[in-house]
Simulated assay, not measured.
Amino acid sequence: MLRNPRTLVLLAVVAALFVAGSLAPLPTPVEIQQWAGSFGPWFPLLFCAIYAVATVAPLPRSVFTVSCGVLFGAGLGLVVALVATTAAAALALLLVRALDRDQVASRLTHPAVRTINDRLARRGWLAVGSLRMIAIAPFSIVNYCCGLSAIRFWPYLIASVLGSVPGTVGTVILADSLTGGTHPAMYVITAVCFAIGVAGLIVDARWQPPAIPVRD
């Protein structure tokens, strides 16, 4: 039996919120977009900044991408999502390298770790672009790992943007047309991006780069 009064109060509050949420009418996607548009042109800029900062932390990017489609529609929502994704990827890499990379890199002496680091340094763009297409690869975790590696900034950023475009476009467009439930096309887009990402990782694993000459 529950004897703690605080527990009973908490359960009562949760039950009341559940009932209220079930009875309250939910706004339609059109009403949500009208509500977002009523705030003026500064709201997309604010949401873009929130999106970028929040996804530097280990928060799911897909939630913000879906919100872009629901709040701003396909056109503006896609612009906001891609700009925020680019900014988050750049900020995460620069932040990791500014704070922790030197300390962590000095401890990455295991041969397997050094091999991965060398691969990212030579052609990391292929691995990064492939991982961006795989939905199960967390956006922030990939950023952190790349920040600790020797991959160059611009190949990393370009691969991040290009690899994120297909999934972002599909998510925003389908969120814009969302009327309830998950559109079947979303599964197709996710499966295609996943297949392309896995194929890229296989090519990356089998592609032997030319050896870097050792200078005396």
Rank of each mutant, 00 (worst) to 15 (best):
P166C: 02
I189Q: 06
I134L: 03
R132D: 01
L99Y: 05
F153K: 04
L8I: 12
W35V: 09
R3L: 14
F72G: 12
L93Y: 07
L93H: 08
P138N: 06
L131I: 06
L99T: 14
L82E: 08
S164K: 11
C146S: 06
T179C: 07
F39S: 14
L82N: 03
R61A: 10
N117A: 11
Y156P: 14
L94P: 02
R132E: 01
P138E: 03
L11V: 12
V13S: 04
G167Y: 00
V66G: 13
V128G: 02
S177Y: 13
I136K: 05
A105V: 11
M1R: 09
A159S: 10
I173G: 09
V96A: 13
N143M: 03
S140Y: 09
A87R: 05
L17T: 08
A121C: 11
F47I: 13
A49Q: 08
L26N: 07
L10K: 09
L91F: 06
S130I: 04
V70Y: 04
L120M: 13
L10W: 10
A16Y: 03
Q103T: 13
T28D: 02
I134T: 04
W154C: 04
F18S: 15
H110M: 14
L45M: 14
A12P: 10
A89Y: 00
A105G: 13
I202M: 12
A185E: 11
V169I: 14
Q33A: 13
F194L: 10
G37D: 10
A16G: 10
L162Q: 00
V104P: 15
A191M: 08
V30T: 11
R97W: 07
F47E: 08
S177D: 10
V142F: 00
L148W: 05
Y144A: 07
A87P: 10
A74D: 12
A175E: 03
L17K: 03
L131N: 01
A92Q: 01
I202Y: 08
A137K: 04
D216V: 09
V30A: 10
T182M: 15
A211H: 07
A191C: 06
L108P: 11
I136C: 11
Q208S: 15
I116D: 13
A205N: 09
L45N: 08
L23F: 05
W125R: 01
G200Y: 02
G75F: 11
